[in-house]
Amino acid sequence: MENVVPYKIQIISIIGAVLFMFLVFRLIVKRKLKIEYAILWMLCTFVLLVFAIWRNGLDLIAHMLGVFYAPALIFLGAIFAIVIFLVHMSVVNTKQEQQIKDLAQQLALLKEELGKNK
């Protein structure tokens, strides 16, 4: 059970996770990312970081779940998270489309009301 993940990749993972966390923070500070979305990304990074540091964790959980090949769990988790996030983005997109439609209609109605059409 020891040394399932070699040290090299562990260091790379930690650096990667920290860099990613930094990027998310930077985007929030620059107001390019809303906190609502950022929370999810920070959560992802946190999970990434936990497993980068706690090396046996992944293997332990995989063993508990009866997953034969531990890294498959990472892919499963990642794909699951991505799908959920994409559905969420579709919902956000739908809402925005609806709002844009409402705005365009209100604008057209207002222009008419103000007599700007004449």
Binding site: I100, K101, A104, Q105, L107, A108, L109, K111, E112, N117
Partner: peptide, 15 residues
């Protein structure tokens, strides 16, 4: 009514 963006038939009629 002059729509600033193309909404499609449904959005236009609804306006």
């Amino acid at each position: 009514l002059n729509l600033a963006i193309n909404l499609g038939i449904g959005g236009a009629v609804q306006a």
